[in-house]
Design a protein around this nucleic acid. Structure first.
Length: 577
RNA sequence: GCGCUUGUAGCUCAACUGGAUAGAGCGCCUGACUUCGGAUCAGGAGGUUCUGGGUUCGACUCCUAGCAGGCGCACCA
């Protein structure tokens, strides 16, 4: 139950009634009218701006209109204790304590469902994320996008949307040729003791290729490793297979599992590129032309070429984009358009792409293509996962392509663990650069938000342990007629914001709101806990080792929210730490 | 040169599709442990939300012109 939504609906029906009685003029849409969380200093539970939105239309001052609406709202509702009007025209509602005992009854009864928006229309999403080239292990940069995509999907799933998590495998093109060559040289190194050509800039120098080579030699001893041309096709397949095994292992250690892996090669071989180009030609989005050199001094040796181009400028891109190279083969963009046609044809409501910061410049052209293919402007939504700045020993840690100082997902998990990685990577909005300080992430104190939230759950577990009850079993009570104190209502209010947090996270596709919310909730809980030191009535367990029902459901409600939130983020809630 | 993006307390960041006196943590200063787990809590100091215009009853949020950082800018993927 979302009390903000509930009261927004009540308010809307009240103003509709008033307009039917010709006592109020209402606009065609209710856009802009809201029911929100008031700032703490106002000591109330819900506030609405309805009077300010309607005042102009009704040519009445917001304060006078607010007075009128406030009394209408209160007349219809015996749960409201105080309703007041504040400058410049807010209506503030404060509930009776009984409201909160009804509220807690509702969420204890609906245990697992609390937070889910039951009324909203449900959609079918495709979330494409990671999609790193199958040429080596994942590193820290990939992990942020990976976690973002995973948790974004989890929030949508929690809110009962349908989500497919997908990985696009770029197993085609020049990079794969170079990659396969590199594996071949490593095989010769292992098998014939030939020195790997380190100075060839086209090759992949990483040591992990030695393992790939060893595995391939072991599994395919019958292959003729003397002749590259003869085994090239099979070796390509085997090399990609090795890389994907490693990537999937990395993903698993981050706690991520995709539903689908879609191969670029299979899209190319099925001639989907040709057919999408035909489709675009038919709709006049394609022409033969030349791309002009960009302004500036750095383009002296620009060569204009006649090429097959996609008219992405029709959709707001700065220039049209090449679909075909001069040797007649397709560009990466062309096969990506084909892949997106493939996505569009699978009838999702929305396509979401999680991209690394260095691919931000790619968004316009690909969303242009999706608009051309689907006719819908907001069909494809691209989210950027910004750079991760690593900090070690209080100094920025630069990763370079030279082997050795590259931090892989394996290193990361080994050093700080899955849970801390996930929580910290998510704790910031995805479009802000993130400082990832190894020492702080490993710290087991309140400086580390992960442990701060987990500790809250562990404290609640410890209370249940003391009184010999199981935190995971359902509580059945016949009577919920409790009178909660102001300290407790403060936390109940925070709990009432949980469905709103989920809704906003889904609407804006911003999963970072969840760890931020959980931190706040944990903080209020820790404050409350400490009150017990001075005032034994505020302690959960009495002298005779018993707990009252109101406190029992109170703890249960908090732990439920923490657990479902941590579940969405994909981290554990240990009962002991 | 163009495009995208970020700019909020000394530092790292929040701020709910435009709401009220802009909030946390770190750091700094004071205080609280014979504890339902101190991996915690209470209090204090700290702000021209990069700048100038505009829209609005109301702007960190939207528009516009700048400034500063980051990323990208051919047939690579």
């Amino acid at each position: 139950m979302n009390i903000f939504e509930l009261y927004l609906d009540k308010i809307k029906s009240i103003i509709v009634d008033l307009s039917k009685k010709n006592q109020l003029i209402i606009p065609e849409t209710f856009k802009g009218i809201n029911a929100e969380i008031p700032p703490p200093k106002f000591n109330c539970d819900i506030s609405t701006n309805v009077a300010m939105v309607l005042s102009k239309l009704n040519q009445t001052s917001p304060l006078i209109l607010a007075q009128k609406l406030a009394s209408e709202i209160k007349n219809n509702d015996d749960q409201i204790e105080i309703i007041s009007v504040a400058k410049p025209g807010f209506i503030n509602i404060k509930f009776r304590p009984s409201f909160w005992s009804n509220f807690i009854e509702e969420i204890i009864d609906n245990d697992k469902k609390f937070g889910i928006n039951q009324n909203e229309k449900k959609f079918n999403y495709l979330v494409e994320f990671v999609s790193a080239n199958p040429t080596g292990p994942l590193h820290v940069g990939h992990s942020r996008g990976a976690i973002l995509g995973d948790v974004l999907s989890n929030v949508l799933i929690f809110n009962k949307h349908k989500v497919t998590k997908e990985y696009y495998v770029n197993d085609y093109g020049n990079q794969i040729i170079n990659f396969t060559k590199s594996v071949y040289f490593r095989i010769r190194e292992v098998k014939f003791k030939e020195i790997f050509p380190q100075d060839n800039p086209d090759l992949y120098p990483g040591d992990y290729l030695i393992d790939f080579a060893k595995n391939i030699i072991l599994n395919k001893s019958d292959l003729n490793f003397d002749n590259y041309d003869e085994i090239h096709d099979e070796l390509t397949v085997l090399s990609i297979e090795q890389a994907l095994l490693l990537i999937k292992k990395n993903l698993k250690s981050l706690g991520i599992k995709h539903d689908n892996f879609v191969s670029e090669k299979s899209i190319v071989l099925k001639k989907e590129v040709e057919s999408v180009v035909k489709f675009l030609e038919k709709n006049k989005f394609v022409y033969k032309g030349k791309i002009k050199a960009p302004a500036g001094d750095n383009n002296k040796n620009w060569v204009e070429r006649e090429q097959l181009l996609f008219k992405s400028t029709d959709f707001g891109d700065d220039k049209d984009r090449a679909l075909q190279k001069s040797d007649g083969t397709w560009t990466y963009f062309a096969s990506d358009v084909a892949y997106h046609k493939n996505k569009v044809d699978r009838k999702f409501d929305y396509l979401i792409n999680i991209l690394g910061a260095d691919h931000a410049g790619y968004i316009k052209r690909i969303s242009s293509s999706v608009e051309a293919l689907s006719g819908k402007k907001d069909k494809l939504i691209c989210k950027i996962s910004q750079l991760v700045k690593l900090i070690k020993d209080k100094k920025p840690f630069k990763m370079s392509k030279r082997k050795g100082d590259y931090i892989t997902v394996d290193d990361l998990i080994e050093e700080v663990g899955k849970d801390a990685t996930r929580f910290i990577m998510l704790n910031r909005s995805s479009d802000v650069e993130l400082d990832f300080d190894f020492d702080a992430v490993k710290e087991k104190s309140k400086d580390n938000p992960l442990y701060y939230v987990q500790y809250c759950y562990a404290r609640i577990s410890s209370v249940f342990r003391h009184i010999g009850k199981d935190l995971n079993s359902k509580i059945e009570l016949s009577d919920y007629n409790f009178e909660y104190s102001n300290d407790e209502i403060k936390i109940l209010k925070k709990i009432s914001e949980w469905p709103k947090c989920i809704d906003t996270a889904c609407l804006k596709l911003e999963p970072h709101r969840i760890p931020v919310y959980l931190y706040d909730l944990a903080s209020e809980f820790h404050s409350y806990w400490s009150l017990g030191k001075e005032n034994s009535e505020k302690r959960f367990i009495s002298q005779d080792n018993k707990i009252s029902n109101d406190k029992l459901v109170f703890l249960k409600a908090i732990s439920n929210v923490i657990r479902s939130g941590m579940n969405i983020i994909g981290v554990d809630t240990p009962e002991k730490m």
